[in-house]
C-alpha cells in the first residue's frame, strides 16, 4: 500500500496491520467522466497542425502535390484581400446563402409548425419530406436550371431546398416536444387557438428550431459550392471549383478556409441569438 501523504501514515499503517478500530480515511472514487472546459487547447491544436504542415512542405517531407504550404495559402488570401477579389467572390455567395437560406428556413419552419399542429398535414407531408431529405440536391441542379434559370434563381432554389428539409424535420420535432402541460394549461384558461400557437407552441419550440438551424445553415454553406457549379462566375464556391479544376491548391485551401470561417461565423451567430432569446432556459 502506498502512502503519498505523510499525514495519512498512521491511518494507512492501521489499515495495513488490520486494526479495525483505528479511523481510516474513506478513499475518493468520484473523479473523471466530467468534461471540463480548458481554454486555448483548440487554438493550440490548430497552430501545431498548421506549423507541422508548414515545416513538412518546407523540408519537402510533404510534396507540393499533397498539401499547399500554409504561408502560401495565407499569401493567396492576402492577394484576394488586396485586389478586392475577396468581396467580388464573397458578395454573391453571401447573398445566395442569405436569400436561399431565408426562403428555405422560413418555408421549413412554416411547414414544420403545420406538421406539428395538424394531423392531416403530418400524415400528408412527413412521408414527402422523408422522401425529399435523402435526395442529393446537387442531382437536381440541372432541373433547377430549367425551372428557375441559370442565374440566381436556380442557386436560391438549391440552397432553399437544401435548408428546407432539415428545418422541417427539426421544427416539427421541436413542436412535438413542447411541454403538453403548457398547452393543456392554455386550453384550460380558454385561450384562443392563435394565442396558444403564438404564445405557447412557438416560443416553446424555439430552442429546438434554433438548434436545427445550426444544421440547416451548415448544409446551406455546403450547398453553396454545389449551387455555384452551374453558371456562376463569381462566388466562393465557384472560386473553389475553379481552383480545383486548375489544381491550384493554394486557392483551393484559401476558399475552403473562407467556407470554414463562414460556418464558424453562422454557428456563433446562432449562439448569440440563443443567448439573447433563450435566457429563460434553466
Amino acid at each position: 500500500m502506498s502512502d503519498p501523504d505523510t499525514d495519512r501514515r498512521p491511518a494507512e499503517a492501521a489499515a495495513a496491520t488490520g486494526d479495525a478500530s483505528a479511523p481510516r480515511p474513506v478513499p475518493y472514487r468520484g473523479g473523471g467522466y466530467r468534461p471540463v472546459h480548458i481554454r486555448g487547447i483548440g487554438i493550440v491544436t490548430f497552430i501545431v497542425l498548421i506549423a507541422l504542415v508548414e515545416w513538412g512542405t518546407r523540408t519537402g517531407w510533404i510534396s507540393n502535390l499533397t498539401l499547399p504550404r500554409p504561408s502560401d495559402v495565407l499569401a493567396t488570401f492576402g492577394d484576394l484581400w488586396t485586389t478586392g477579389m475577396l468581396w467580388t467572390h464573397m458578395a454573391p455567395s453571401l447573398s445566395r446563402l442569405v436569400v436561399g437560406a431565408a426562403m428555405g428556413v422560413s418555408a421549413g419552419i412554416a411547414v414544420g409548425v403545420a406538421i406539428g399542429l395538424f394531423s392531416v398535414v403530418r400524415a400528408g407531408l412527413v412521408p414527402l419530406v422523408a422522401a425529399l431529405f435523402p435526395i442529393p440536391k446537387i442531382a437536381l441542379l440541372p432541373l433547377f436550371v430549367i425551372w428557375f434559370g441559370i442565374d440566381e434563381g436556380s442557386k436560391y432554389a438549391l440552397i432553399a431546398l437544401g435548408t428546407f428539409t432539415p428545418t422541417v424535420v427539426s421544427t416539427y420535432g421541436a413542436v412535438d416536444n413542447v411541454d403538453r402541460t403548457l398547452i393543456r394549461m392554455g386550453q384550460s384558461f380558454g385561450l384562443s387557438w392563435v394565442s396558444i400557437v403564438r404564445k405557447i407552441v412557438l416560443p416553446g419550440a424555439l430552442p429546438g428550431i434554433l438548434s436545427g438551424l445550426r444544421v440547416s445553415l451548415a448544409i446551406g454553406i455546403i450547398l453553396l459550392v454545389a449551387a455555384e457549379m452551374l453558371g456562376a462566375q463569381y462566388g466562393i464556391g465557384a472560386y473553389i471549383l475553379e481552383a480545383g479544376s486548375l489544381y491550384d491548391l493554394e486557392r483551393l485551401f484559401a476558399g475552403v478556409v473562407i467556407l470554414s470561417a463562414l460556418g464558424v461565423l453562422t454557428s456563433s451567430g446562432i449562439g448569440w441569438v440563443e443567448r439573447r432569446l433563450l435566457d429563460w432556459r434553466v
Partner: peptide
C-alpha cells in the same frame, strides 16, 4: 369571471419564457 372552471396544476405549468 373570465374563466369559470380554472385549473391549478401539480407541475405549475408556467411559461418559462415569461
Amino acid at each position: 369571471c373570465l374563466n369559470p372552471l380554472t385549473y391549478i396544476f401539480q407541475d405549475f405549468a408556467l411559461l418559462p419564457w415569461r
